[in-house]
Structure formats: C-alpha cells, structure tokens
Computed example of a mutant assay.
Amino acid sequence: MSWLVRYWGVYREFLANAFAEASSYRLHFVLLIVMDQLFYLSSLGSVSFIFDHVQSIGPWGRDEFMFFTAFMLAVDHLHMTFISESFWNFSFDLRTGKLDFVLLRPLNTLFSIFFRYIRPATMINFVTPWAFLIHFGRAVELGTWQWVSVPFLIVFSLMFLVSVEILISMLMFWTVEAFGINFLRMQLQNISRWPDFVYRGVARRFFSLVIPVLLVGSAPVKALLNPEEHATGLAWMLLLLFLLWGAIRLVWRLGLRSYESASS
C-alpha cells in the first residue's frame, strides 16, 4: 500500500497546482465552463434533433440512444478533467527536452506524463453530464445491479479510451510535432461517440478491431441494456485492454530508443 499512498500524495499536489493555476486566469476558467456546457447540450441536442425525424436508429429508439450519448458524455467529462490536457503537453516535453527531467523522477514515467495536467473548470462542471445520465438511465429502466455497474463501466470505458490514445500518442516520438497526432486522437474520440451499428463494412471492422474505439461506449452500454446477449462484448474489450497495455509497453521502449534528449 505504500506505493499507492506515495502516488496519491503526488497526485494531490498535481490537483493543488491545477487549481492554483486555474484561479490565476479567471476569465479562461469561466469560458471553459461555458464551452463544456455548450458541448454537452449540443451533443444531446443533435441526437434529439435526429429523433425528431426518425423513430429508431438500428435497434435503438430515442431513450436508448440518448442514454448512450449521456454515457459517453460522462466518460468525456472524466477524460477532459483528468487526462486530456496531458496529451497536448507531451509533444512540448519531447521538443524541448523537458522529458529528460520527467524520466529522472522517482515515479512511473507514464504516470508523470499522462496524469500530470488536470482541468478544474471541467471537474466542477459535472452536474450536466451526470444528471442526463441518471435521467436517461431511468428512461430505459435500468435495474439495481445495472445502476451499480454504471460507474464501474464508465471508468472501464475511460481506461480503454485512454489506453488507445496513449498508444497513438507515442507516435510523437517520431513525428515530434503534436498537432497531427492530437487531431487524429480527437477524431477517434468523435467516432467513439456513436454506437458501432451506425457504421458498416470495413469501417466498423477497422474501428472495432484495429483501432477499437467503437468498443468504448458500445460494448458497455449494450451490456447494460441487454446483458444476456452482450456480456461477451465486455470480455472481448477486457482482452483488448490487456493487449493495448502490452503494446504500450513495447512502443514506449522503442520510442525511448528514438528519443533525442536535450543533452544529446
């Protein structure tokens, strides 16, 4: 347990620094809150607009689709709060040689890189996504055990999404410049915000197997709505998660061999 206490102490300092920095730029802080609210409402509004013109999409009606969207917004809320900012700083560390100092820290380097930066404005903006998740969860009549499973599945989906993103972000060791990789990562997020059945053919297979972002929301939500038929999707997702962790470890080592530090 000592390592857990040590890492929690470090992460607590990350949180304190993030709030101190956010309080120094108050207008930026407020604008981030407004931006997040607009994103949540526009995402839900887009789906609602579609269902003003159709009765169902694939096997889902309005309530099921809106629950899926709310589930993905809850994942996005955690992602934007605790992870997202770090991807944009990784390339800066590579270009400037700041990664040298990160590698020397007595901490896991991936922890220092990808969990360092936190967005307090999004953290306190939790009411909207989670309120909609509860509202549409009630609309699809989730049972007791399904409600108990929801927070665990959201964290599981977040872990899966972040693992895919970390693996993709390691391409920065060779590209150095971050914009292309980060915009690719954001486009993959956009793909994951739709259930897998809206895609067909090669696209569906590619984003379910090669870059499996379609599993992020589709597998957990399907398992929640119909556990008898779709529980195996979670097992497949768990297997892929372990494979992703193995790939991250391998590519990280290859990347460090290609990394040219500021002192080299």
Rank of each mutant, 00 (worst) to 15 (best):
F49H: 04
L225H: 09
D52L: 06
R257H: 08
H28G: 11
S157P: 02
N226R: 04
A178Q: 06
N182A: 05
G255K: 05
V162D: 13
F152I: 15
F49A: 14
F101M: 14
L99E: 09
G9F: 04
M237P: 01
R205L: 12
V221R: 01
W130A: 07
W145F: 13
M80V: 00
W3T: 12
L104R: 06
L103S: 11
G9M: 11
G9A: 14
S112E: 15
N125K: 11
R205H: 04
L32E: 06
F126M: 13
R119I: 13
G217E: 03
W174M: 10
R205C: 06
H53T: 03
H230N: 15
N226P: 09
V102R: 15
Y7N: 15
Y25P: 02
A235F: 03
L225I: 01
F136G: 09
I50G: 01
Y11F: 15
G217F: 04
I33N: 02
F19Q: 08
L31S: 03
G61H: 03
E141V: 06
P120S: 12
G9Q: 11
E21Y: 10
W194C: 06
P220E: 01
S192Q: 13
M186N: 07
F206S: 08
F71C: 07
S261W: 01
G9K: 09
N89L: 14
E64D: 02
F68G: 05
F114P: 08
T232I: 04
F82K: 13
F87P: 09
A16T: 06
A178R: 14
T109F: 13
G246T: 00
M72G: 03
L214C: 06
I124H: 00
F242G: 13
D36C: 11
G45Q: 11
L103P: 07
L234M: 00
A121P: 09
A20D: 00
S42E: 07
A139K: 08
F49Y: 13
L41W: 10
E177P: 01
W60D: 04
L167T: 14
L250E: 13
S192G: 09
L44V: 08
P227E: 03
M66A: 08
G217M: 10
F206W: 02
L41N: 13
A131N: 02
I118K: 10
I211E: 00
H77P: 01
Q55C: 01
